[in-house]
Nucleic acid binder design. Sequence first.
DNA 1: CAACAATGATGGCACCGTATACATCCGACT
DNA 2: AGTCGGATGTATACGGTGCCATCATTGTTG
Lengths: 206, 206
Amino acid sequence: MMAPYTSDYAGAMAHRPYHHGDLRAALLEGAERALAEQGPEALSLRELARRAGVSHAAPGRHFRGKNHLLDTLALTGFERLDTRLGEAVEEPGDPRSRLLALARGYVGFALDHPALLELMYTRKHTPSRPDELTAAVGRLVETVLRPVTEGQEEGSIAPGDPGTIALTVAATLHGLASYADADSLRELEDHLPAVVDLLMSGLLPR
Amino acid sequence: MMAPYTSDYAGAMAHRPYHHGDLRAALLEGAERALAEQGPEALSLRELARRAGVSHAAPGRHFRGKNHLLDTLALTGFERLDTRLGEAVEEPGDPRSRLLALARGYVGFALDHPALLELMYTRKHTPSRPDELTAAVGRLVETVLRPVTEGQEEGSIAPGDPGTIALTVAATLHGLASYADADSLRELEDHLPAVVDLLMSGLLPR
DNA sequence: CAACAATGATGGCACCGTATACATCCGACT
DNA sequence: AGTCGGATGTATACGGTGCCATCATTGTTG
């Protein structure tokens, strides 16, 4: 017979309330760690269960399957990214500084959680993704849309379909972040002001 | 005892030369098909072998493992995308039309092979990717860089670090393509001219 | 024509994801 | 207070997968 809890680091501290305490959260946390350390391909439910000190079927109580866990993780990523961008947009200022803050936020997130960001967009492209994910993406676009319309109202941003403008900006941000964890990462941050200026002024000579 | 080749569609036509003829190519082709139909997660070497009518270990003669096959597939993707963009850039014209052609090429590729494009960038971000992949990405950036420097020489594109400009353009293209197979796909193609105009003129009112 | 290298087949191993049946524990209700 | 139900975790089993070692066949080449 073995003791019910053989986990080596839990149990002695903080008086774990019952069973595990909060698997689900532990699984998500462990998944994010494993995701960052190894690829998303190497992530295994059984391994996560092992690290959490539970049996390999226990995760089934909290997630319908591996996809469900990954979708949930991606969803938390979108939420965190959205709040981060929301804060960046909050700060007042001219359009250039707000756009720069937005870009810094996006690229910063990509630097902090590269694997998560990749997972988020991998999941987004998956067939039959859950509605919650598409909704989260929609909220993200809306966060970018807000400063555009506001800038247009006060005449500091050129007129035109705000949807198209927001799409372009969001696409550029995502593209930058996408390149970020492939090429020189830190270097990109230094280039951000130049990129933003370019977006503001356009490619044509003035 | 079974006949050596139980595949149902092969053998009667075109006189297959020997063993299989060209596994490797058949595997890559099958992988791309499976990739497009289902996700990249569902892709299985054994299933590919089955479809090709060979034993489950035969692919091992042509690819060191699953990763090697996927890397190879991604590499062909980069090569095809690069030639497509190269052709788009070949056509002479003012910067706007060339940029539009570039954007059409990139988004068109994304529309034709959405799963492949995703695989390409997933593989690009993988730790310890093969040098050939990074080289292929470099060639892609160079293809975008060329019209930028040419445009600057003839004064039709604003001065500035061409690397930054090319990065911004490439990032926007990739971001657009990345959003393409998530949101309304066909719709995006109609918006491309507006996006290009925006990139050319900038966000600031003129 | 004989030896060799390339290609494919067979079988085995460890691991994975998932489903089912069983055990345990918390909390709520009478 | 005591019991019962549902939530959580366990035990076990099945089919599938990637990879490896070994054996068989085929095409080529000296």
